[in-house]
Amino acid sequence: MPPTTDVVNQKPESKAGGSLRAYLRSIAAIVWKDLAAEFRSRELIGAMLVFAALVILIFNFALELDIRTREAVTSGVLWVTFAFAGTLGLNRSMAIEKDRGCLDGLLLAPVDRTAIYFGKAIGNLFFMLIVEAIILPMYSVLYNVNLFQPGLIFVILLGSIGYTAVGTLLASMAVQARTRDMLLPILLFPVLIPLLLAAVKASNGFLMGFEMAEIMPWINLMIAYDVIFIAVAFMVFDFVVEE
């Protein structure tokens, strides 16, 4: 090991500041880090995908339904699958930060701590969307239901944003606890009820061909939910991760 004094004997860095550029760079760094680690390990997406595929397979065999009834239950089956698979991803995403003390490493960075929240939330959203993009065609084939409708895709996007916004915040709380694997679903699902209800109703509306006037209140509810919980997370994340 060849230590060189001039390497350590230099002025402190002063570039990292509270500027918007530094804030956005930190968010991008966290997203890049999560994607790079997942690209290498494939643990998180792998676990979510296998779980989601098993759930829709089990439902497929358990519910021997005619084509009309299949369309009616599709939105419920889809959102149950996404919600349960999502908790696996959220737990794993925060467990990575707890291993080797990495969460402390993030908290020590001279950036606004909400950048950590947004970086993690965007990473989790990305993983969730990848899983959904694979599960949707699989579901379409197994249930013989056309899921490739722009309205439904929009609802899934809105629902996934709300899910990861709340899920990332609560996973950050749960990761501090010894019983984090059990704690996250217990904390998460009650808070998700309005979002899941609206997502199921709006998805069902598009699948059953309802009028937009009937679907719009549910979409508006989802938009309001997303905005409110992103704002809440922005305000409380610093307190959630503090010792």
Binding site: P12, E13, S14, K15, A16, G17, A22, R25, S26, A28, A29, I30, W32, K33, A36, A37, E38, R40, S41, I96, D99, R100, G101, C102, D104, G105, L106, L108, A109, P110, V111
Partner: peptide
């Protein structure tokens, strides 16, 4: 901004290379 911390845990990501870990923290610290 003025602190460097080393604990008994390494605060490093196992699924990233040494270089990737340093690159990540370089971005975080600007």
């Amino acid at each position: 901004r003025r602190l460097g911390v080393v604990s008994h845990q390494p605060l490093l990501y196992g699924d990233l290379s040494a270089e990737q870990n340093l690159r990540f923290y370089s971005w975080m610290y600007g």
